[in-house]
Amino acid sequence: MNQQIKAGVIGLGAMGAPMALNLARKKLLQSVWNRSPGPARSVAAETGVSVASSPAHLARQCPVVLTCVSADSDLLEVIEQLLPGLQAGSVVLDTSTVSPATAQRANDSIQRAGGSFVDAPVSGGVEGAIHGRLSVMAGGDPADIERIRPVLEAISASVTHMGPVGSGQATKAVNQVIVGGIAEAVCEALALGEKLNLPSERLLQVLGAGAAGSWFLEHRGQSMLEDRFEKGFKLSLLLKDLRIIKSLARELDISMRVVEQAIDDYQELVDAGYGDNDISGLISLKRKPATEAG
């Protein structure tokens, strides 16, 4: 596969839609499908590609199928729906965040149908998806990854092959431990800075210039101090990821105290109705007086 690659995208949410647009800019996008038709029509109108009537219809047209869905059950459902149209030799490229075991189940189904599967979760946030600057952590056969490399490179700044199928999701689990831990630390720190009446602009500048700097602080520090949580990574989705990590930790007999704390915090926010907010909304809990916390 090279410049003749025709890819289809299933799942056009905050990450999937900009990935589809970046594929279209590289003339790699053939068709799109989304459970609710509105996003598919929007991408099709902007790019001129077709809207598939079903995942199977998309798979019949596209030898590379990129999936980007929210949960393990969503991925397995989409895989079952696309199988009747899957062409022999096709590659299903999943950019969702699911468990390594779910990636293996998807791989088994795709292989039985004569296709190949690559689990390739991404990191870099909505901004990275929009600008095609994601970090891809891929699991699968090296030959399959090379065949679809133009698709991977169209959405990313880096593509790293981590091992066989499931390795991408295992790597994403490690990534999400760091994401969750940094969010805990940054939100607590900025809540402390507010209580100390430190000037927010200078505080963000000095923290970002030193060892405390991070992607999260740089891209979410100002917005969280302004109580703007509408854009970014939904905290309900990070909660889902953290539960995957907790299950892995139980299997591996490893203690993950930061993950446990993050699960408790994000569950409280979801229960309060803030599941669609960006994960930086965690600062609202960190601002609570100690007598009210927990």
Results as ranks from 00 to 15, higher is better:
205 Q>S: 15
225 L>M: 14
62 C>S: 15
106 A>P: 05
194 E>K: 11
24 A>F: 08
74 D>K: 08
166 G>W: 10
83 L>K: 03
203 L>Q: 07
208 G>L: 11
214 S>Y: 12
60 R>Y: 05
118 V>C: 06
247 S>R: 15
87 Q>R: 15
263 I>S: 05
216 F>L: 15
24 A>G: 09
69 V>K: 07
50 S>N: 13
213 G>A: 04
151 V>Q: 08
216 F>K: 00
294 G>I: 09
88 A>H: 10
259 V>C: 13
273 G>L: 09
216 F>I: 05
200 S>Y: 02
78 V>G: 08
288 K>P: 01
199 P>T: 09
270 V>W: 07
57 H>V: 11
227 D>M: 07
185 A>L: 13
147 R>I: 09
51 V>P: 02
44 A>M: 08
107 N>G: 15
64 V>D: 11
271 D>I: 02
270 V>M: 07
67 T>G: 07
136 V>D: 08
112 R>C: 09
241 D>G: 06
61 Q>G: 06
129 A>W: 09
186 V>E: 02
78 V>L: 08
270 V>E: 11
84 P>T: 04
188 E>A: 10
61 Q>P: 00
32 V>N: 05
277 N>L: 10
283 I>V: 13
133 R>N: 13
267 Q>H: 06
77 E>V: 05
145 I>E: 07
285 L>N: 05
28 L>C: 10
206 V>A: 15
10 I>H: 05
126 V>H: 04
117 F>I: 02
247 S>F: 06
184 E>Q: 15
180 G>D: 03
286 K>N: 03
282 L>G: 00
215 W>S: 04
165 V>E: 11
45 A>E: 15
273 G>A: 11
113 A>H: 13
57 H>R: 14
109 S>L: 15
177 V>T: 11
189 A>W: 12
207 L>A: 05
105 R>P: 03
2 N>C: 00
102 T>M: 13
30 Q>C: 14
178 I>W: 11
13 G>P: 09
259 V>L: 01
95 T>V: 10
17 A>M: 14
274 Y>Q: 15
229 F>Y: 15
213 G>E: 05
161 H>Y: 05
150 P>K: 05
141 D>K: 14
